[in-house]
């Protein structure tokens, strides 16, 4: 099956431009994790800070463009992986290894049609 691993962390720890020493540390962790994933990795990316995010909302058929992320929360979507795993337990085992610097959460979602 195919799963998305959505990474939620408090982006404040990475500094205003996601460029501080914490960022260097997490990037090298992700590079090591990527190597470990090998062929189980279908895709993935890190996102710039939510200050650069733009949201398009649809309401009653009308679309409007807004500054900022979809949801204001203590932890923000900071990146994602798409992986191939035989079942949920295998996906959980991989998700446990996704580097997270401090507190955070990894949401595991099976992809539609990814059986």
């Amino acid at each position: 099956m195919q799963y998305a691993l959505l990474i939620y962390e408090d982006e404040a720890i990475y500094g205003p431009d996601k460029a501080g020493p914490a960022m260097e540390e997490i990037v090298s962790c992700h590079m090591a994790f990527n190597r470990e994933l090998g062929s189980a990795r279908i895709g993935g990316a890190g996102l710039k800070g939510t200050v650069s995010a733009t949201t398009i909302r649809t309401k009653n058929g009308a679309k409007s463009v807004h500054d900022g992320p979809y949801a204001e929360a203590k932890e923000q979507l900071g990146g994602f992986y798409l992986i191939e795993a035989p079942d949920l337990d295998a996906a959980i085992a991989i998700a446990r290894k996704v580097p997270v610097l401090q507190d955070g959460a990894i949401e595991i979602g099976p992809l539609l049609g990814g059986a």
Binding site: M1, D87, L88, D89, A93, P110, A115
Partner: peptide
Amino acid sequence: AEAGVPFEIPGPDA
């Protein structure tokens, strides 16, 4: 069914 919970007895680490 949809999340792919395996029909297995988990391995020793889990």
